[in-house]
């Protein structure tokens, strides 16, 4: 299929990524090449074939509703890029 510039920009945006104008053509061309390569899958007749999301046949795995220890508060926040010691902090939604 033909992947337009808009398609690629939309995919980048859905992925929360941005492409600098300078690198756009290189990235786009690699993206298109890979996509063209995987398109061979459409040649395969898969009528009636069940999708295989898991490689092994495992089902109904559950745990009991029993409390496990949570992380210490400071450990939970220890990797936070920004925190006030209580909450994770992120920039505002409004600008």
């Amino acid at each position: 299929m033909n992947v337009s510039r808009e398609d690629i920009l939309k995919v980048a945006s859905l992925s929360k990524l941005e492409l600098a104008e300078a690198e756009f053509e290189v990235v786009a061309s690699k993206f298109r090449n890979v996509l063209a390569f995987v398109e061979q899958l459409n040649e395969v007749d898969t009528t009636g074939v069940e999708e295989m999301a898991h490689p092994v046949d495992v089902h109904t795995v559950t745990r009991s509703d029993t409390l496990q220890e949570s992380l210490d508060h400071d450990v939970a926040l220890s990797n936070a890029p920004k925190s006030d010691g209580e909450f994770f902090l992120v920039p505002p939604v409004l600008g």
Binding site: V3, D7, I8, V11, A12, L14, S15, K16, L17, E18, L19, V27, K30, F31, V34, L35, V38
Partner: peptide
Amino acid sequence: RSQGLGEEVKRRIMLGTFA
């Protein structure tokens, strides 16, 4: 994400998002 992830990773993310 754009600065923290490398080119190959970003391209695969985009490919997966597309697919």
